[in-house]
Nucleic acid binder design. Structure first.
Length: 503
DNA sequence: TTTTGAGTTGTTCGA
DNA sequence: GTCGAACAACTCAAA
């Protein structure tokens, strides 16, 4: 009807109508691709005029970081799932591409919506975009409401005794727990019979989010490992609570076991809320199914996500600038070959290479191995943490602006509550400690698969007959070490020491 | 204002 | 093989 009318005129028409006829409310989905426990969706449905469920692929607005490849794959699948879930309830997901503000205005005008609801983002680009959008909508007489839907507590609500943001995790998490968070979920909403009838929508396939030829199909194995979407998130949580969380405190560091939750990409896209996770874990603990130790340890990981997001809110430069200014003088090495070897999993250190190859093949890496691999890039190769951050952003399905930046700075020592400079992971000892049988290495570095456990984390120490029995030819079937760890460790220690003396 | 205790994830050395 | 200490010095958070 009013699809082609100019903005102003359309608005006028609808304002005139709103006295007698209530327009629909738009739910603008962004990083909250779920129907359950979704405050923006619940609020929009409450309006009673029907809803328009909208997702905008915004690759143009300044300050919004374009998704990396692996995350684009996830987004595609997650939008499919969301669209299906909405269809089951008689609603459509409208897909649009373009600048957020303009696109939203266009959908407002075409739909005659009088309200727009969304759940907040906390990155500087997201905040800027949402603030501007809210202003424009408000100026047009549209009610724009932002809701808290992605964090346990809003970042501005957590303050230390002196009024500043927390910079140390332990007191932060203690304060969050003492304060508590919302435990009543927003109920699974009842949908009106018909919504967004006749609205134009892009075709998801047309967005090109999946890898396309001649690009290699790096996502080939993803579907076997992941089930993006709300239902997948719920199943993952359930499976973790029944199989993985028992012994979590002890076994979460073992990449050869399946004791991590693997919920991070689901959280990243908001397919499940941190409240829902926390609630389920607390219940399992209270009923005695899960030990207090395991439950608390796992909840603390949700706490780290929270901490990272709060940090990014208070320190918007976190993804680009050292949080500790003294690191600005750090003599990072330019080493394209080293960076490439690291990215490809060809450093000659089996645990590092296994991790980097897991990342490429599966779009994820075990948490412990992320630290080992990151420490290797930063401290052994002395390559800037930003190069590592960028690679993880491109390859992780759970790539999260806040977590990624905060974690890389933590490893580098430049971040909040960071590792002391002398904490330099030894890739051999870490491998032997956390992958004692070498099963993790065997899975991702098959050319070492026949080496006995004793040598699998240090093939250079293996006698010639053992190497040849295992079919390993150093420098041919598997690379020699690109740097000697003992040498690299001393080099890093010297640099860090100078950094501290120089202030 | 001052003081005090503490700080995710490690490694190495020497007893 | 196991264990504790050293590795530095600083900043944070709360009393």
């Amino acid at each position: 009807m009013a699809a082609l009318a100019k903005h102003g005129k359309t608005r006028q028409i609808h304002h005139g109508m709103s006295e007698t006829h209530k327009g629909p409310a738009i739910v603008w989905f962004r990083e909250d691709l779920r129907l359950d426990d979704n405050p923006a969706l619940a609020a929009a449905l409450k309006c009673g005029g029907g809803i328009v469920a909208l997702y905008i692929l915004d690759e143009q607005s300044e300050g919004l970081r374009p998704l990396g490849g692996a995350a684009r794959w996830w987004l595609h699948k997650s939008l499919e799932a969301l669209s299906d879930a909405l269809l089951e309830r008689g609603a459509r997901l409208i897909l649009r591409r373009g600048k957020s503000t303009e696109t939203l205005l266009d959908v407002v005008n075409r739909s005659g919506a009088t309200q727009v609801h969304w759940n907040r983002r906390y990155s500087p680009g997201g905040i800027a975009c949402d603030t501007a959008t809210k202003q424009v909508l408000t100026d047009c007489g549209i009610t724009a409401v932002s809701h808290p839907g992605n964090l346990l507590i809003e970042p501005w609500e957590m303050k230390t005794g002196s009024g500043g943001p927390y910079k140390v995790f332990t007191p932060f998490w203690k304060a969050v727990r003492e304060r508590g968070w919302r435990t009543e979920p927003f109920a699974a909403p009842q949908f009106p019979a018909c919504t967004a009838e006749g609205m134009e929508s892009d075709s998801l396939d047309g967005w090109g989010l999946l890898p396309t030829a001649p690009e290699p199909d790096w996502a080939r194995e993803f579907p076997d490992l992941w089930q993006p979407g709300e239902a997948g998130a719920r199943e993952r949580l359930k499976a973790f609570l029944s199989d993985g969380i028992g012994g979590y405190a002890r076994l979460r560091d073992r990449p050869d076991r399946e004791n991590t939750s693997r919920l991070s990409p689901h959280l990243r896209f908001g397919e499940i809320s941190p409240q829902m996770i926390a609630c389920a874990v607390s219940q399992a603990r209270d009923s005695g199914d899960v030990s207090e130790r395991d439950a608390d340890k796992f909840l603390a990981e949700v706490g780290w996500r929270e901490f990272s997001h709060h940090l990014l809110y208070h320190f918007p430069d976190l993804p680009k600038e050292n949080l500790q200014a003294k690191f600005d003088g750090f003599p990072w090495r330019n080493d394209d070959e080293g960076l490439k070897a690291w990215q490809q999993g060809m450093t000659g250190y089996p645990i590092v290479d296994a991790g980097m190859r897991e990342l490429w093949r599966h779009g994820t890496m075990h948490n412990r191995v992320r630290m080992i691999a990151a420490s290797f890039l930063i401290k052994d190769l002395m390559i800037h943490w930003r190069a590592g951050e960028a690679w993880f952003w491109e390859t992780l399905v759970d790539a999260d602006h806040a977590n990624n930046a905060a974690s890389w700075q933590w490893v580098a020592g430049s971040g909040a509550d960071a590792a002391p400079f002398f904490r330099i992971f030894n890739p051999v000892l870490q491998g032997e400690k956390h992958d004692p049988d070498g099963d993790y290495v065997r899975k991702f570095v098959p050319e070492l698969g026949r080496l006995p456990a004793k040598y699998i984390h240090r093939p250079w120490d293996a006698p010639d007959d053992i190497l040849s029995d295992a079919g390993v030819k150093p420098g041919q079937t598997y690379p020699e070490r690109i740097v000697d760890h003992a040498y690299a460790r001393n080099r890093a220690l010297a640099v860090f020491k100078a950094l501290n003396n120089g202030k």
